[in-house]
Design a protein around this nucleic acid. Structure first.
Length: 383
DNA sequence: AGGGGACCTCTGC
DNA sequence: GCAGAGGTCCCC
């Protein structure tokens, strides 16, 4: 009995394909989910029925480009749940809300809710998700003071912000990311997401609320493997079970990690299957307010092994990972993760067009290999 | 404690 | 073919 989910299509007859972003032209076409159709009717009876927003209104956020530039915040590997739905426009779920953001050249960022049960809450949740409690202007000026290269990069990569994501969905996204590429990660995250409540369709993209732990528990390893998760299928199933076994509740347990020290939070996350130093750092930085967490990917590791000679020839372990994190924190301070995020973005091939060639990191992988793996080999041969 | 190797799958050289 | 992808686990 696979009846298609009930959808109310709200289309304005003359509306263009992409939602009009200008203040003069605020209404858009969108698709709204009729939430009354649910597998849990009793819940609907208990709660006031969400009011789908037929006429999507664009509202200003009053955030400058220096504080938030969407193309350097959304498609840069922090989240795999948002989609580009127009020029300088991105759409994605925030809790139970479906939101679009649009950058206007000289008028900051605007947003609209395609679906929500409460517009006031949506705006509050949006500011929280955008991590607006932290001023990029302030922390970047400190990075500039201590790093000439950061200063030069920042000139071209203004507004690269770190989001404050929901810990549960951030965790499963990054478990999917291990030893993986972005298109495939996105596909896997989409599969998991599709188990949550449908929120709407914008520009041909379906969006879902991230599934609850109870819904995630319905996923079997076989189903995940067939969906192309490979060996990560086991990680997902086991991590769901581990979270469900927490006395205070898995979601609450994850949220409680926001109050811990970075190392404690990393240690707790690392008890979960599929969570090593890299994934733990990503979740810590992108969801747990651990602003000095440093996701040590292969590139950071290669740079670090040259900066810290003792690390050359060793492997990325929790211990050596901490060495790298400490080095970054010593250099950049308590928001080191935000600094590293910009350095990471500057290395993305997709963002290189924003940088003058003089700022391209000319380190060829070959030469890095000679100095790291080659070094390791030489050391080994010496013995 | 730390190194070796396997692991799903897909893309690019 | 085979490394590499924003790694992690298991074993020795």
């Amino acid at each position: 009995m696979h009846s298609p989910k009930s959808i109310i299509r709200v289309k304005r007859p003359n509306s263009p394909l992409s939602p009009p972003p200008t203040p003069q032209q605020r209404q858009s076409s969108t698709t709204v989910h009729k939430k009354a159709i649910s597998k849990k009717p009793r819940k609907i009876l208990q709660n006031p029925q969400p009011v789908p927003i037929a006429d999507v209104k664009w509202k200003p956020l009053n955030i400058n480009k220096s504080e938030l530039y969407l193309p350097l915040t959304f498609p840069t590997g922090q989240t795999f749940r948002w989609r580009k739905t127009g020029p300088l426009q991105y759409t994605g779920p925030i809790g139970p809300h479906l939101v679009s953001l649009r950058q206007l050249e000289d008028d900051g960022v605007w947003y609209c809710c395609h679906f929500t049960d409460n517009e006031d809450n949506a705006r509050i949740d949006l500011f929280d998700f955008l991590n607006m409690g932290i001023s990029l202007d302030e922390i970047w000026s400190e990075f500039r003071a201590c790093d000439q290269r950061f200063t030069e990069l920042a000139l071209h990569l203004e507004g690269a912000r770190v989001l404050r994501q929901d810990p549960l969905e951030c965790l499963f996204q990054f478990i999917c990311s291990s030893n993986n590429n972005i298109p495939r990660i996105t596909k896997m995250v989409d599969f998991i997401s599709s188990k949550g409540d449908f929120l709407g369709n914008v520009e041909g993209h379906d969006f879902f609320e991230f599934p609850s732990l109870e819904k995630l528990a319905l996923l079997s390893e076989n189903e995940l493997r067939e969906a192309g998760f490979g060996y990560r299928a086991k990680y997902i199933v086991r991590t769901v079970a581990a979270l469900q076994s927490k006395p205070e509740g898995g979601v609450e347990w994850l949220l409680s990690l926001r109050k811990l020290d970075l190392q404690e939070a990393i240690n707790c996350l690392s008890t979960l299957q599929g969570v090593g130093p890299k994934v733990a750092a990503c979740v810590a930085l992108f969801a747990l307010d651990q602003h000095h967490a440093i996701p040590v990917d292969t590139h950071v590791w290669q740079v670090a092994t040259r900066l810290i000679p003792e690390l050359a020839g060793t492997r990325l372990t929790p211990k050596t990972c901490k060495r790298v994190t400490d080095a970054f924190v010593t250099k950049y301070g308590k928001y080191a993760g935000w600094a590293q995020n910009l350095l990471f973005i500057s290395e993305l091939p997709s963002q290189k067009s924003l940088l003058p060639a003089s700022l391209w990191n000319t380190d060829e992988k070959v030469s890095v290999k000679l100095q790291t793996k080659g070094h390791a080999k030489m050391k080994k041969e010496e013995n």
